[in-house]
């Protein structure tokens, strides 16, 4: 099915968007001296108290910030990387005091866990995996899934961490005959994991048994799209992909996200929603994050746009602040906040 069959969400004009949907809560002013590469949130326990903390990453340093009050943050731990630069933070759900990071140049070469020893609170890092790593994702129940190699020597591994983040258990998932590029969790079916491949397929695994359940080819119109999130509802999979198409048309506007519905039993799929920019706004998807029913994207114009996937339209636009384009956007995993980052390292925290 082509994108032409997809239902097009309403394109409200910019002036109809409620600017009150995003309220600035606090700011981490230029926390690092070099270019910011990622931001995330996590729970950190100190002296028996769990606190929602922020993790910032630039190429050679990862920092943990704890809240001093509702407006201010204090840097409490820092991990340094002198040999291989940091590419991304990999948050692991349901675990305290453990951060994972992916390191490499253009492609991921290492995954490391960052910890603090309980005795002297000194920072340490543990190499979890090295090699030609194609994709990595933290999933519920303290698990980390990664794929290494290409289709003929591909290995897909799931690590399970102990509650304190220390020891781990390893299991292999059955690889498909195509190279896996990205993973996505399935909300509503906790033991299901989705993957996208180089040949434009979506694959489903059973995380508990390691079985490969299905390989489904999707229309080439979705080529090069990354799956950000999937929802299992009423026997169907609703899959959120970013829209790789740069074309803007009168009818579609500028599509940034798209939603496909897939019947996992028959592998049949159809496009159901296009998330386009409001009229008068231009820009393509640069990077983004989807949590529950909200999708956020940094656009090539430097603006951040947010869509409510249930309403089917854009609900907020955040233009560059102080003439600085946005470069990062992440939903907080610990509350309903949005973390927006600028290239110079400034992080702004908004309530949505």
């Amino acid at each position: 099915h082509s994108t032409e069959q997809t239902e097009i969400a309403d394109l409200p004009a910019c002036e109809n968007l409620n600017p009150g949907n995003l309220q600035l809560v606090s700011e981490l002013k230029n926390p690092s001296s070099s270019c910011s590469v990622d931001v995330s949130t996590m729970w950190w326990e100190r002296a028996g108290t769990k606190e929602p903390c922020i993790i910032t990453a630039c190429e050679d340093v990862v920092s943990l910030w704890k809240p001093l009050n509702s407006l201010q943050w204090e840097k409490v731990h820092t991990w340094h990387f002198t040999e291989v630069p940091v590419l991304q933070i990999v948050p692991v759900p349901d675990v305290c005091n453990l951060i994972c990071v992916a390191l490499g140049n253009l492609e991921i070469r290492e995954i490391r866990s960052l910890l603090c020893s309980s005795g002297d609170e000194s920072e340490k890092q543990v190499l979890l995996k090295s090699g030609d790593i194609k994709a990595v994702l933290g999933v519920t129940k303290r698990r980390l899934v990664s794929s290494t190699g290409t289709f003929c020597n591909q290995q897909i591994q799931i690590m399970t961490f102990a509650e304190d983040g220390s020891s781990k258990d390893e299991q292999l998932l059955m690889p498909p005959d195509e190279t896996v590029l990205t993973f996505a969790e399935v909300q509503g079916t906790q033991e299901a994991l989705l993957g996208t491949t180089t040949m434009n397929s979506i694959v489903i695994w059973n995380l508990k048994t390691g079985q490969l359940l299905k390989k489904m080819h999707i229309d080439d119109a979705y080529q090069a799209a990354v799956c950000h999130r999937a929802y299992s509802e009423m026997g169907l999979l609703f899959v959120v992909l970013n829209h790789p198409c740069a074309k803007e048309s009168q009818a579609l506007g500028s599509p940034v996200f798209q939603m496909l519905v897939i019947n996992p039993k028959t592998a049949q799929s159809v496009g159901v929603l296009l998330c386009s920019l409001p009229q008068g706004q231009a820009g393509r998807f640069l990077e983004g994050d989807v949590k529950d029913h909200v999708a956020a994207a940094v656009l090539t114009s430097g603006t951040i746009a947010i869509w409510d996937l249930l309403l089917g339209h854009c609900t907020a636009l955040l233009p560059p602040v102080s003439d600085q384009s946005w470069s990062l956007v992440k939903w907080s995993g610990t509350d309903s906040h949005l973390l927006a980052g600028q290239k110079d390292g400034n992080i702004f925290i908004y309530r949505y």
Binding site: E191, N206, T209, M234, V261, N263, P264, T266, V270
Partner: peptide, 21 residues
């Protein structure tokens, strides 16, 4: 959505029982 063939609410369990171990 009607073009997608028969829908099963237990698709995950059914595919798990059909797939090779």
């Amino acid at each position: 959505i009607t073009d997608l063939g028969p829908i099963s609410l237990n698709w995950f369990e059914e595919l798990s029982s059909e797939a090779p171990p």
